[in-house]
Amino acid sequence: MANEKPKLKVAIYWGAACGGCCVSVLDVHEKLFDVVAAADLVFWPIALDFKYKDVEAMPDKHIDVTLYNGAVRNSENEHIAKLLRQKSKIMVAYGSCAHMGGIPGLANFTTKEDLFKRVYEETESTVNPDKVRPVPKYKVPEGELELPEFYNDVRALDQVVDVDYYLPGCPPQTERFVEVFMAIVTGAELPPPGSVVGANEKTLCDECERKQTENKLIKEFKRPWEIQDDGETCFLEQGVICMGPATRGGCGARCIEGNAPCRGCYGPPSTSPDPGAKMMSAIATMIDSNEEDEITTIVDQIADPAGTFYRFSLPGSIFRRKLFEKE
């Protein structure tokens, strides 16, 4: 059936990411046949041996769909992102990192300088008496070596190039990927550009099996190990911060089923201008006290609000990064 149409040309690229997204593509298992049947993979550095110049050689909009996973961390990421944009009809930000910055985005809490210092000088296992650091261009007898430039800031994909669709998740649920992919393949009507696909409009609570009540009053914030979880009560009602209400569903509530609260990898619904702010607002509202002192005590129990509410989304948030004096 699919054969009747020309096969889709698909590119998959891995920016600043852990590789999980690529694995999630591989996780399609037997569906791979459908995928392969429908698509030609024209670029996928992790799996197939293509060179950048092959891509450069392609005419513009040659690629039908590019699945870009990972954040934009360095000049190479940026270059390829722009390149693929130029060569692709549809640019998909695949996975949390491309979508909102993801875990690598947490580096925005610090600076390039501090990172380098830590990594190249301070870690316990480092021996670097000369304090040598990577430099973009390095002359060796054989000539000049070039390394991509490491940027100070991590960016989400759409902060570098225009993105047509976002397929969120860390990594995206394979089933969702297949659905989306097959939708493109079958030529179903596509949502307007800029949409999030492969995730629900409703947030996680909608599919969460745990019992929800209105009893969301928090006197004490707890870490997951501090509660006697019965597996049935809503995490929030047990004082554990769960990003579920502010995170799109579609992941199949994997974490919840593993008795862990949602961390928010699927990102906020469309009604949320900032990925963490709404949840922050909701959580603060749940604090069960009207006394200023008690409120601050309770707030202090949230050890790391920024990390909690923007675990996967710091670069994609309103503030994008932490400010430093020298900036």
């Binding site: 409009e201 929800q212 209105e214 969301k216 209400p245 469309s270 509202t285």
Partner: peptide
């Protein structure tokens, strides 16, 4: 309430001083 978005978490119910919100 935008019913297409509401996930039924019921956070809002206690917040309302007028018990105007129900589940």
């Amino acid at each position: 309430v935008n019913e297409d978005v509401c996930c039924g978490c019921q956070t809002c119910i206690n917040v309302c001083p007028y018990t105007a919100i129900s589940y």
